[in-house]
Simulated scan of single mutants.
Amino acid sequence: MKKNLYLMRHGQTMFNEQDRVQGVCDSPLTEKGKEQALYTRDHFFRDRDIQASLAISSTQERASDTLELVTEQPYDRLKGIKEMSFGLYEGWLNKMIPKDWEVSLPQYGGELFSDAGIRMMDTLSEVMKRPDTGSVLAVSHGCAIRAFLTACGLNPPRFNNCSVAELDWDSETGAFLLVEIWQNPLI
């Protein structure tokens, strides 16, 4: 049996606007971020008549605030789909981060990209195995989503805020198969 996963990135935040590393620290959605969420609600979910049987969000406010703009249904907050930790680099301007950041993060209190992908894979697989789950709307974060898609064997692009990766999950194999990446045009 196949089930659908709609994996969405949160809306623009103050740190996104300032081109800062966010990681597990939080900053609020901007007005543009709220507009992006409403655009995705209207032009991805409503235009395609997509209704999720289960909604989940990262435990970070920018993700749950985005989800609340997209749907009014109740949702669960899961630590397993939070953004990867950038340790001491959080809050820094992106241009100040060393080029080898993906391998150097653990020595600065951060998480490896591959570890974030495994964490996301484990969490989303468990969610999809729930017997009451049909289609799932999950709101997460840019690096965490890219890490997950990389763990699925894909070479994902950078996600615009409020973009959606639509995947099929095969219950027999446990594999996630990419159907589409819909990029929100409100950059």
Rank of each mutant, 00 (worst) to 15 (best):
M1W: 05
M1E: 14
K2W: 05
K3W: 15
L5K: 11
M8L: 15
Q12D: 10
F15H: 08
Q18H: 11
D19V: 05
D19I: 06
R20S: 02
G23K: 08
G23Y: 03
G23M: 13
C25F: 08
C25H: 09
D26K: 04
E35K: 14
Q36G: 12
A37F: 07
L38I: 14
T40N: 14
R41T: 01
R41Q: 15
R41N: 05
H43E: 14
H43G: 09
D47Q: 14
R48S: 09
D49R: 07
A52R: 13
A52Y: 13
A55D: 04
S57P: 01
L67Q: 02
T71R: 01
T71K: 07
T71S: 11
Q73S: 12
P74C: 08
P74S: 13
D76K: 15
I81Q: 11
I81N: 10
I81H: 13
E83G: 08
F86E: 02
L88I: 10
E90G: 01
G91L: 04
G91K: 04
N94R: 13
M96E: 15
P98R: 02
W101F: 10
V103I: 15
Q107D: 13
G109N: 12
E111K: 05
S114Q: 12
S114G: 01
A116C: 15
G117V: 09
G117H: 07
G117T: 05
D122S: 07
T123G: 04
E126D: 14
V127P: 14
V127A: 10
R130S: 11
R130I: 08
D132C: 11
T133K: 07
T133Y: 01
G134Q: 13
A138S: 10
C143G: 08
C143S: 14
I145Q: 12
A147L: 11
T150A: 04
A151F: 03
P157Y: 02
R158G: 00
N160E: 15
S163D: 00
S163P: 11
V164L: 09
V164Q: 08
E166K: 13
W169K: 04
D170T: 12
T173F: 12
A175N: 14
L177S: 14
L178Y: 01
W182F: 04
P185L: 05
